[in-house]
Design a protein around this nucleic acid. Structure first.
Lengths: 247, 247
DNA sequence: CCAAAAGTGTTCCATTTACACCCATGA
DNA sequence: TCATGGGTGTAAATGGAACACTTTTGG
């Protein structure tokens, strides 16, 4: 496994100025969904919020907000995500707590220090139509490719570009040994669909034959008696994930 | 890799009572050192602080304290560790942010919610003599085996037992692919010494021949022209770690 | 010379990888 | 019947585990 690209370099931030108030706590989320990139192939997208205040006014930032007194960290992440994007991911995991002093430069809230606890998730494609009263192009929320190489913004507000990159690294590592990909699919799915998820996340193509065997050997995967009809060729068998859903 | 034993179950904490003040931030540390267990073989120990107030008065807890406004998360962890134990580990890494509502039951600070960001480290054995004016049996700080199966306390204050277990899991996973073990050793060391560190952390013996080859293939390891004299048998060659030290 | 640890070589085995091949269906 | 993706078989390559064997020192 390659070394983590980001947090190892986080702690070294130097004291730039003395903040006065005690640090406040905020929650941010990096939500990945699979959507077709400009080039047509499915890739990873993230919802971003356009900032309407300084600093970084006009830049895109991760959805987030304060932590209230009566909710757990994960509850806060869920609530915040629902408020800003209408999403409710089945799988949500803590990524990292970012608290370098460099992040403190926020005139809009005085000189108060902000420590962000970041969560990440992978959601189904059909969840990406912002739910409830929120439309796709609603307000200042929009989906963007997660990586600049696929058309995503090269710069984000604060240190959010680095946070997204670190979340990407975690997702790619985790999908190789954990049951992450199933949360993108419905109740039943073909192995080709599951493979497409892995390929999109990892950014490379996988051998269908070997992919089949590796999964059948390990994961909680159950072959159903149903087949996906309507395709142009031989109908593939549908499978069901039998392991733990959600948390 | 086996699934993480702890944080996957953290988010599900339910709302037990409504806290009133905004959550406060604290830093805790899990510092591992290698010392001989009661049975004589080297195992992992952690410094613990005996609580002098309710709740959990008299129980052992992880060293920790509040986060001040002018320091980064890692700086706060270092400062706190130095204050309570006199230690200054070369390698320090963030473990997890714990913020379940179950942790909030602390009459000593009113009903305020506490979110703990926990760091972990592995330090050299000679660092474990509490430095500065602090002696080994000083005040309410003492070393304990990290695992109950090696004589450590089965119960700790708050959720600290689970936190130590999770840190152990992280350490054992990380030592297999990252350069963690070198921080326990001095400038030069024999392969047998390095292997002893791995064996103590993993809790099982390793084949000397295979261990040698695996490390020579991957890690930043440099053979010196020095040999460790004075042993009872053939003097082993000394090696030097050439990868990144500290952070 | 003997014991014991350092260090090397070799075999065995499981997993991964590459790819040839057959199967089943829609058009 | 043909094109295409679904699905199976198989052999080479890889990497780890087990262990025999040689080397080098102190006693």
């Amino acid at each position: 496994m390659a070394p983590a690209p980001f947090p190892v370099a986080v702690g070294g931030a130097n004291v730039a100025e003395r903040a006065q108030l005690p640090p406040s706590l905020a929650i941010s989320t990096v939500i990945f969904a699979l959507k077709p990139a400009p080039d047509g192939r499915p890739t990873l997208w993230v919802p971003l919020v356009r900032r309407v205040r300084e600093p970084y006014r006009g830049s895109w930032a991760l959805p987030g907000g304060p932590l209230t007194a009566s909710e757990s960290l994960e509850d806060a992440a869920r609530r915040n995500l629902a408020e800003t994007t209408g999403l409710d991911p089945a799988y949500l995991e803590q990524l990292y707590a970012f608290g370098g002093l460099r992040r403190a430069n926020r005139p809009d809230i005085g000189s108060q220090r902000v420590v962000s606890i970041v969560y990440w998730a992978l959601v189904r494609a059909h969840e990406t139509e912002f739910g409830g009263e929120l439309g796709e192009e609603r307000d200042n929320v929009a989906w963007h490719p997660a990586e600049p190489s696929h058309g995503g913004p090269a710069e984000l507000a604060f240190d959010h570009r680095e946070i997204v990159d670190y979340a990407l690294w975690r997702l790619r590592n985790k999908i190789e040994y954990a049951q992450v990909a199933y949360h993108v699919l419905g109740e039943m799915f073909t192995l080709a669909q599951l493979r497409e998820v892995h390929e999109a996340v990892l950014g490379r193509s996988l051998d269908p034959a070997n992919f089949r065997r590796q999964l059948k050997g390990t994961a909680d995967l159950e072959a159903t008696e149903h087949y996906l009809e309507g395709g142009r060729h031989r109908p593939p068998r549908l499978y069901r994930y039998t392991g733990p859903r959600g948390l």
